[in-house]
Design a protein around this nucleic acid. Sequence first.
RNA 1: GGCGCCGUCGCCAAGAGGCUAAGGCAGCGGAUUGCAAAUCCGCCAUCGUGAGUUCGACUCUCACCGGCGCCUCCA
Length: 517
Amino acid sequence: MTLRVYNTLTKTKEPFEPVTPGQVGMYLCGPTVYKPSHIGHMVGPVIFDAVKRYLVYSGFKVTFVVNITDVDDKLIKESTARKMTMAALAEEMTGDYQRNLEAMGIDTIDHFPRATQCMGDIVGFIELLITKGFAYASEGDVYFDVARDREYGKLSNRDVASMQGEGGDMAERKRSPADFALWKSAKPGEPSWDSPWGKGRPGWHIECSAMSHKILGETFDIHGGGLDLVFPHHENEIAQSECAHGKPQAKYWMHNGLMQASNEVGKVGGRNTRETEAGDQQAQEAGKMGKSKGASAFSELLQRHAPETIRFFLLSTHYRRPIDFSEARIEEVNTGLEQFYRFFKRYERITGESFYSLPQISKRAEGEFDAGSNPTLAQVALHRQHYLEQMDDDFNTGGAVADLFELVRTMNKFADDEKLEANKPSAEQLATLKQGAKTLRELGGTLGLFRKPVEKPSADGGGNSELADKLMGLIIELRASARSKKDFATADRIREVLTSLNITLEDRPGGTEWTVK
RNA sequence: GGCGCCGUCGCCAAGAGGCUAAGGCAGCGGAUUGCAAAUCCGCCAUCGUGAGUUCGACUCUCACCGGCGCCUCCA
């Protein structure tokens, strides 16, 4: 089995072979930190977090870089509007972004370079491009000379001649409308850095070329980002980096699909429409998600849904597909997820040990096991193998998740058939159950799932849980005594009232369990 | 106008030139249960439309219809 990856550059799936055997350098375009993150900002990090986990699991040593773009026209505009410095705004929003990543359990990122902390590298990079004749200074600005790059357009399959380019007030300083800014001269009052061309700031794309080069070198393995970045951002990055170094910037370009508002056009957090006919402009806008509504802060979303649910939601479809965002969908996915949690509890009831105390297998080879003539384990092995095949095929997380469900079903059936909850399980039965659970933990781990118990985001949780435990213990005791006297009217009355309070009772061989919905 | 993506069960969503077209949610029937809940078993699609290529297509080609993205610093 070999890992295959879809490469936007070649538009095909290719066998994955890193530049340096065994080592992988991976760069993901991070956010421009001018507003709080919304769900769309988490798509890439969650996906590439899973990609890294799977690569590590497959035996690679991975360096994962996510940049922070903390200097940009949008930052200037927003900080001016909020009457604060650009640096303070960037600091605030970077904090928000990183808190969200942390909440989502994304702890695989090794470097978070910030554009403002790499100014020397950026300026040096631009100088190199000028020296090599690929860029020119013009009235304090510096532009990339697109005409000099014969390969320009290869990623997005574009023809330079037909390019419209940026218009606006920079037009007359450029040789060609398709040229893009590497350095922008500062207007009075704007934040700026010194450079050979005067005070100014970097253009949009150069920081990624400079920072990826600084940390990962001239040619690294995976460059990721949202599909919307293919043009112009990644096209321009390729132009800058490859003209500067004379070699490929990245071997594989991976692009994830964008989050879209369900039922509506437009994507979360995106700008509104391009110009359309005046006539249907109205209609179009009406169908679009209100920017504010759909793109609500991610931190708010976290108050309604567990991070693992959001992760599962994002990974339950193939990464290159667009995802329709809707909270109803997230809820639906959560219903499916709960099947796993119920199994974890069941596992604990039977073995007396937490599912989460099982060893977390982090290498593929270590997860292999001999099923012998055990039919349940044979099933487990089969699903494990199928899961890995799915993941090997361009990280098909959507297809892989199906095997996770199959795994749970297999183990539930085993527990049912062998009546593990009613009788004392034998050592052999326990071993089988553990192997199944271990495999589930192993495979889920490659997606960053099932790593630790979920904490429910419910508003009323936490606080008086000790009191609740004691009260429920008493109630369940009273109901049990009623049941033992065949007083089902009382027993059912208790359960009905609890149900109306969103508390579910489950009578099991070992006693009654309660859960809050 | 240019470049590209998508249209699979009620909803979401894998997939693939011939093998039973995964899985989740919802629904129906059954086992289990004092009754439930949970779990298990079973049922539930011929793949937007039309034409072509082929021994054979849902999977390839073309056209059409429908939805979407980028071409203006949005992950």
